[in-house]
Design a protein around this nucleic acid. Structure first.
Lengths: 200, 200
DNA sequence: CGCTCAATTGAGGAGTATCAATGATTGTGG
DNA sequence: CCACAATCATTGATACTCCTCAATTGAGCG
């Protein structure tokens, strides 16, 4: 395989956003990559996609692991599973994101995303219950949820008034997670760790 | 691996929609599966996702091929490539769909989707230039694009007035593809066949 | 202290949704 | 062969979500 095709990286630290910038300045973030997630260069280079670091971020070259996975060479089962889990979870998140953007209101979208990020972050390690370390400006949040920054702000205020979430840059508190789940309008956010391992 | 995990199917004929139904009746279609595309059961069973046949459809069991791919057993290179191409193209389409729903207007979304489907269908085989075989009701189209059926209708009328598209059930004519691309507001729809083979 | 960047607020308007009918077409049983 | 039901496309009227523009406040920070 051409070497440049094999550019895969694993996020080691920080938050990275993948998305596209339109000519007229509109931006849509397609997904967030957190530590442990794999980013394929083909996802950004082949298309008009790009990736931005939202915080100080460190990524590691995952090309060796990747070609091993691809070519069926021996990788530890744990590694292989981790790879598949990660890719599979990402596909699921993409689908959820489509549903959010297509059918949920701004209020629902926000609740839904915050819950997903909380879930995701909990799985990454120690978190005080209900606290979400969210290093995103409202601008970025808006570009994830397909909203204007102004409306993003107002939506967050509404969630605060409703005592569901207390947003502040860096440290967001989910005051009422059951309430949030209700507000998200979608049944329950499943625990992705229960997921089987389709491995694309 | 558990057998039920390995339920993968390949679409042989027909159009299949994957998506979710919300409790209150809202529906969002996440993607369309056309002949040659792979559908993983885990994409529908693990979550609140479902799949609907939009036309008479036939799918084949792809579990054998899949486990072969997964376990690195010998599959013809062509097969392996086809698998990866398919999965990779799907990921790209999901990302594009997110951008459509997040940042494009109804008019832009529609133009964008029609072009994508035309591209996709051309690659499947013989098509008269400019003719898109589109076996979708406006209702379904609306559920793909995150619009109400009424607004979907009005948007299609607008495209017709602008002499870009002539929609009628089953047979849609893209009268002015450059114009459509312009209307789609996104640079160019890339030719996915040029794509490299990341293979998740 | 004047920057700059993020968050906030207000006012007005564009884009879509919703509700309720009306045609148009097609299949179906009498 | 016709009435009927069913589905899809279309239209009008109205309401609401969300956007845009413009300005203000507040919080670091050199």
């Amino acid at each position: 395989m051409c070497p440049e095709r094999d550019d895969a990286r694993v996020v080691a630290r920080g938050w990275i956003a993948r998305g596209a910038m339109l000519e007229d300045g509109r931006r849509q973030i397609v997904g967030l990559s957190l530590p442990g997630d794999v980013i394929l260069a083909t996802e950004t280079i082949d298309t008009d996609m790009a990736a931005w670091a939202l915080t100080d971020a460190v990524t590691l070259d995952a090309a060796p692991l990747r070609s091993a996975v691809m070519e069926g060479r021996d990788v530890s089962v744990r590694m292989l599973d981790a790879w598949r889990r990660s890719r599979s979870a990402e596909r699921l998140r993409l689908a959820r994101h489509v549903i959010r953007l297509g059918r949920l209101s701004a209020y629902e979208r926000t609740a839904h995303l915050l819950l997903e990020l909380y879930e995701r972050q909990s799985r990454l390690g120690t978190t005080e219950p209900g606290v979400l370390h969210l290093p995103l400006t409202q601008d970025v949040l808006a570009d994830i949820l397909g909203l204007s920054a102004v409306h993003m702000n107002r939506t967050l205020q509404q969630l605060r008034r409703d005592r569901l979430v207390d947003y502040r840059a860096g440290r967001t508190i989910l005051r009422d997670r059951p309430g949030l789940a209700l507000a998200a309008g979608l049944s329950v956010i499943e625990d992705v760790s229960d997921e089987s391992l389709p491995g694309d």
